[in-house]
Design a protein around this nucleic acid. Sequence first.
DNA 1: TAATTGTTTGCAGTGACTGCAAGTTTCTGC
DNA 2: GCAGAAACTTGCAGTCACTGCAAACAATTA
Lengths: 206, 206
Amino acid sequence: MGEAGGLRERKKLQTRAALADAALRLALEKGPDHVTVEEIAEAADVSVRTFFNYFAHKEDAILGRNPEHLVRALERMRTAPPDESPLTTMWYVVHDVLRDLERDGELTRRGELIMSSPSLLYLLMLSSIDDERQLIAALGERMGEPAGALRPALIVSTAGAACRVVMELHKTAPDRPVAELLDEAFQLLAQGIDDAYGPDYQKGIS
Amino acid sequence: MGEAGGLRERKKLQTRAALADAALRLALEKGPDHVTVEEIAEAADVSVRTFFNYFAHKEDAILGRNPEHLVRALERMRTAPPDESPLTTMWYVVHDVLRDLERDGELTRRGELIMSSPSLLYLLMLSSIDDERQLIAALGERMGEPAGALRPALIVSTAGAACRVVMELHKTAPDRPVAELLDEAFQLLAQGIDDAYGPDYQKGIS
DNA sequence: TAATTGTTTGCAGTGACTGCAAGTTTCTGC
DNA sequence: GCAGAAACTTGCAGTCACTGCAAACAATTA
């Protein structure tokens, strides 16, 4: 029931990988909206019905998200040194994922595809929303905040926003390394994004 | 060709409104995933085909987004006082939309529905991505930053993230007024979200 | 009133996705 | 090594979202 277990396990992983690979390859070739599930299934040599046993949506296969990442992120949050600040924890979490993506050379290929396809972007954000909720809960607990507190939620979700912004920038201007952009963005988040902020309603207060 | 123009104009607006209303009502009644376009069209007394002349996706009708908002937002950015800080401008933009939503009493009804339905949430985010790109361009120009600059993008998209967080919090705990939560979130964004931030790679620097 | 233009509709078709009821393959205990 | 359980795969039938096309229809304009 573990990882390298029986034949069954291995075959499932193989099938899943074959589907995800075919999906990505075809999506890159023909554009994500012009690939049909039928083609993907055929390329992976399984039936259409089987495709849907593995992925709920066509786009899921193209995204090929690694559920491992969320698990590791939550783990990192639980085991982080107690004096580590929350955004710092988020930084480690994000870099952990980034390292994986860069190692596979997936970042550019897939990142570009995702950022330019509405339907993919959809699903990416959808899945990140789900992840976000879990991360917020974990971070909130770590910070000793009550459920429904603002700060942990804001930290997780602005960090997510920063990642998306960086992906988008990287797509149009791949000159600067992603990690560097990301660090700059986090720095801004930490220090504050606008030190001249002050809408009318505060004019009388300060 | 304006607003109150001819019969034609009025009829189109009526039809659109009827569809959006029916969509929202049915979605609230039966849950957004159990409404079919056929039902919506029937309730609005038009054909299914006509539904798709008005909305590209079923979810669009339920969201009933007002395209006016983006127009006003861009306008606000162009005409803002030159010494207004960027996040302050965003604050006005967000509050402009908020005022509209609250006036119609839409915020709670629709907000809750949206936050609890994956498909709605994803369409909302998709459309906000499109808006975001335009807002980023406008804000960047206003700030005199080159295209592809980090800060304007980060400001717009973290502001968006803040709105989503606030909607979510409001859904689970409607005790605090939305405007207040929003202001607190913007305050955090402006001042910085984590003043103890400092991942390893900086340890040697500061 | 006739020509023009914009809107609605039915229809036929594609493709995503689901439940169900066989098959087929792997695993388990003997 | 084998019978039966458990897990997977597959085809099939069906629902629903969504699109293009061409005919009917309504509003506008001359």
